[in-house]
């Protein structure tokens, strides 16, 4: 149980109130009595808000400065993965300036992903139907999984429809899709400090842990994003552009957000660093 940290106010009335508060929350044997959960609050001091703002500013600035380096790292990862993944070896770069302050060069494989052939279209249709059929006996415990699979099948059905009706009008190619999504991934990493500043930084855990979680989330995403889109590139090249919509909706931002939420949830599960308040 962490000790109750009490500052020493100069105002005698404030000191009296604080002493009373300490007595109210101290048990017969000297232990701390936490307030009932119905009335518990978390004390937020001005220094916490200032530190949150400072931490957000520093993390964002450092990330902005590191963006060119991150682009080079991702490009190196694509170059290293290109041969093992059978992507032909060539890696292109899309350079984007961010608010004229910094720029990032995101990589993509210089590989051609074609529209689906008739055979590929039919195979995709069969797989989609099989997936839907497989979800029919899934009841009760696995129902959310069944819904997720049906949702994926519905997305895939839209792709099947599009390529059956107007295959030539499909507006995306592999390079544009991968570089675009990696750019979105880079932006997502960039707003992590803001998201955490508005939420996690306000919570009663120590600042070391707050900084650690920020680094952990950003690093995790920085590693995940290139691997995620390298893998998607391979899948799209081999299965044709017909799987690109599914990759976009189900395996684009969604897993990145899941990672962010999962690590945020882990951080929020850490024990409080100080005693609870009761603001009434």
């Amino acid at each position: 149980m962490p000790a109750l940290r009490v500052s020493r106010p100069v105002d005698p009335e404030a000191r009296r109130r604080e002493a009373m508060s300490r007595v109210r929350s101290t048990g017969a044997q000297g232990g701390r009595i936490d307030p009932h959960r119905a009335i518990a609050t978390i004390d937020l001091h001005r220094r916490d808000v200032i530190l949150a703002a400072a931490c957000f500013a520093v993390a964002t600035l450092l990330y902005a400065l590191a963006l060119p380096w991150l682009g080079r790292l991702w490009t190196a990862a694509f170059e290293a993965l290109s041969a093992p993944l059978g992507m032909g070896g060539a890696v292109g770069q899309r350079v984007t300036s961010i608010a004229s302050l910094t720029q990032v060069a995101v990589p993509y494989f210089v590989a051609q992903a074609s529209a689906p052939s008739r055979t590929e279209w039919w195979i995709t249709l069969v797989v989609t139907v099989v997936v839907v059929l497989c979800t029919i006996p899934m009841r009760s415990r696995t129902l959310p999984l069944a819904y997720a699979l049906r949702f994926a099948a519905a997305i895939q059905a839209t792709a099947l429809l599009f390529f059956a009706v107007a295959p030539a009008r499909f507006p995306y190619d592999l390079a544009g899709y991968v570089s675009g999504m990696m750019l979105v991934g880079a932006m997502l990493i960039g707003i992590v400090p803001l998201v955490l500043a508005l939420t996690f930084y306000l919570i009663d855990v120590g600042w070391t842990r707050k900084v650690a979680l920020t680094v952990l989330v950003m690093t995790h995403l920085a590693v995940l994003v290139p691997l995620q889109y390298a893998l998607q590139s391979v899948v799209i090249v081999h299965a044709s552009l017909i799987v690109l919509p599914l990759c976009f909706v189900m395996f684009g931002l969604l897993p990145e957000i899941m990672v962010l939420v999962a690590l945020f949830g882990w951080g929020m599960s850490w024990r409080p660093g100080r005693a609870r308040g009761t603001r009434q």
Partner: peptide
Amino acid sequence: AAAARLDGYQGRVRLLP
């Protein structure tokens, strides 16, 4: 997460995803 934390069951927040 905030609600579970106020309830004192912050371990449950790990189920967030």
